[in-house]
């Protein structure tokens, strides 16, 4: 202990105190504060980056999930659409067939009707013509027959004979 006190140099103590305290304040201002601030800032930014990366990953997962869902839905919808389309298609074909049948039947019946009426008309016409022609023929015959008076009387006689009362 005596030796220690003897060895104690006030000058060294004085300078050490002065320089060390000066050093603490200088370093605080120019080194420690900026260093610790920068490190803090960096740590925070890393933390944030990790957090946002995690968040982005989660979002990606959610998005993927959504995508899968959408694809599934789309697939289901497509299938149902195809199904519907098939049904509609076959229905349309069926309908078309039925309609066509109906139309065809109608057409056929119309055609038959017109044929019938045409036939009737033709028959009527023919009948009228036949009657006309027969009358004309009868007229001609009569005319030629009744050129002579005797023939006329004969006919009258015949007629009277035929029409016996």
């Amino acid at each position: 202990m005596d030796k220690l006190i003897n060895e104690f140099s006030f000058g060294l103590f004085f300078w050490q105190l002065l320089i060390f305290i000066g050093l603490v304040f200088l370093l605080k201002k120019f080194a420690w504060k900026p260093i610790l601030d920068s490190v803090n800032e960096r740590e925070n930014s890393i933390k944030e980056a990790l957090y946002s990366a995690d968040k982005a990953r989660q979002e990606m997962e959610a998005l993927n999930e959504d995508n899968k869902k959408i694809i599934m839905e789309a697939r289901a919808e497509r299938e149902s659409l195809i199904k519907d389309a098939k049904i509609t298609g076959s229905k349309i074909v069926e309908d078309a067939k039925n309609e066509a049948k109906v139309v065809a039947e109608k057409l056929i019946s119309q055609a038959q009707e017109s044929i019938n009426s045409e036939k009737k008309a033709a028959i009527e016409d023919l009948k009228a013509q036949v009657a006309d022609v027969s009358i004309k023929i009868a007229e001609k015959i009569l005319r030629s027959e009744l050129k002579h008076n005797d023939k006329q009387s004969e006919l009258i006689d015949d007629l009277i004979k035929d029409s016996k009362l």
Binding site: I19, F30, P34, I35, S38, V39
Partner: peptide, 17 residues
């Protein structure tokens, strides 16, 4: 030592910027 320390850690602080 103090001068070395000052410049050493000041350069570290500056290198961050």
């Amino acid at each position: 030592t103090s001068i070395i320390m000052f410049f050493l850690f000041k350069s570290l602080a500056d290198s961050y910027k």
